[in-house]
Amino acid sequence: MNDKLMTLNLKIWRQKSAKHKGRMQDYKLSGVSPDMSFLEMVDLLNEQLVRQGDDPVAFDHDCREGICGMCSMMINGEAHGPSALTTTCQLHMRHFHDGDSIVIEPFRAKAFPVIKDLMVDRSAFDKVIQAGGFVSVNTGNPQDANNIPISKENADLAMDAAACIGCGACVASCPNASAMLFVSAKISQLALLPQGQVEAKARAESMVQKMDEVGFGNCSNHAECEASCPKGIDLSNIARMNREYFKAKFS
């Protein structure tokens, strides 16, 4: 059993707070099981740091089931690490080998300031949602389920867009730190449904405006976002947002 355990050379970004200057620090970690998730590996490191009386590495995590969107991390230069369609919490150490060097950094963007170590403040996403990522409805008794007919095709596309967990990997991996995959998924999931079409124009305009305002970069169609997205959000959502925005302005 023990001969399967790995020893890793970690290089981790340490930063005391938003105000402090950070730097990369080296750690040697042994006893890593291939069955551990990536976050459990960092937990192991933190246990070791606490035993030594050092400050543990701060990182975001919550459900550890790949659905909450809290975990982040740039692992060896890729958002959520090397496995496609996988969040950091669902990435397992069996994808690494004994003696590997692993570089771990926070998601980097002006709109995502570092709070501490690997934790970043992603509330810029919340601001974009507040600008228009909702539908206004009169509350009351729920309607009959099939009251509003929706085509299977649109229902599927809206559901695909709604799979976005808002983790920010699109921003982190984009060479321009653009948030268009996230914003377009949020615009699409509503624009595709009749309930969302009423406010479609105002929504596209205000969400795009807010996205620019909070400091995200511009999209230049690299498609790194789509490649890094743990939920497989499709680039066609950005195309839809471009259409929706153009329609909002000129029709």
Partner: peptide, 15 residues
């Protein structure tokens, strides 16, 4: 939009 650049950044090869 990214004042601090990455220590290591690779292209995924899919984008």
């Amino acid at each position: 939009a990214r004042p601090q650049s990455y220590y290591t950044k690779v292209r995924t090869g899919r984008g």
